[in-house]
Write a protein that binds this DNA or RNA. Structure first.
Lengths: 168, 168
DNA sequence: TATTGTTATACTCTATAACTATA
DNA sequence: TATAGTTATAGAGTATAACAATA
């Protein structure tokens, strides 16, 4: 059994009990809570997706192609705030895995769309996404969830191009 | 100078004038909103802190030392979910910058605390943190903010050691 | 034998620059 | 001259393994 507190003077060398409970000065900050919650959700979903050989960034690209067939990489990069240079290896891997096909638009750009295999994978991944939502958010009511989503959305700036990193 | 729209009317092939608005199939998901909001807050705060030569991970370490003088690196690592191995270069840099001092506890561990320079830097950094809160969250009322913080806190699992990454 | 701090290393994600081939 | 895609590379951040000194 572990003590929650320790008397400073007589710490027993033989017992490793009572590890100090540290102050966390940024506990009340929105930025901190946001990041903690994001890390938590991300870790859970990331584990689920690893079984499909997908990262969350990869999945966001896959789902965007599914929802916007014929999209180009440049368009994808702008929407997901991923550099063109970093998108290239992602789509190359998808193509190598037979998940997407590229249809020539003109001499330099292609329209991307899912193959059947890609659509199947997206469907299985989507089940993980919804499972993740259920698993992590079951403590909230639907109304609370909607309120938070709405409020978080209001944080986003109107002018694009300000975000860093990928959205999912 | 570049026009936002084409006055010359008809282009033959791909119109750059009307960039396609892409569907974003995960807009309504909590995981997505959380990550987007976190990235947004993180980017804003990161820019503010760069002027102090601090990353957010660095700052979380600095603030934890300030709030818990005499803390060891192992304790810090557990509280902030940072590997001991990754904490070493952070504290080494802090010591080299004269921000912290290390007092020998026993032959192998030191208690960390801020120097005056460290406390001054922490104070300036804290102003950036609160400025970041104000700047990004001014669209919410205090009541809404508190509600969100409380709800986000309820997401956190009771057993520790489950988180990945650093909290701020 | 376990713990503290450290070094070395690898892997992921992201940013920048530069190249190619088109337009 | 500008754009689409690509390649190469550098920088963070984080993970594991191993080591020396100490408990």
């Amino acid at each position: 059994m572990r003590l929650k507190y320790s008397v400073h003077g007589d710490r027993m060398k033989s017992e490793k009990a009572a590890p100090r409970t540290l102050e966390q000065p940024f506990q009340g900050l929105m930025a901190f809570q946001l990041r903690q919650a994001s890390v938590l959700v991300t870790a859970d979903l990331g584990e689920r997706l690893a079984g499909l050989s997908l990262t969350m960034t990869n999945l966001s690209v896959l789902l965007m192609i599914q929802a916007n067939p014929g999209v180009t990489q440049t368009e994808l990069g702008k929407a997901l705030v991923i550099q063109r240079a970093n998108l290239a290896p992602i789509t190359a891997t998808f193509a190598a895995r037979g998940l997407i096909k590229r249809d020539q638009i003109d001499g330099r750009s292609h329209g991307l769309s899912l193959t059947n295999a890609g659509a199947n994978l997206a469907e299985r991944a989507w089940e993980h996404v919804t499972a993740n939502e259920m698993h992590l958010l079951h403590r909230m009511t639907a109304v609370e969830r909607a309120a938070i989503v709405g409020l978080l959305q209001s944080l986003r700036p109107k002018q694009p191009g300000h975000l860093q990193g990928s959205p999912l």
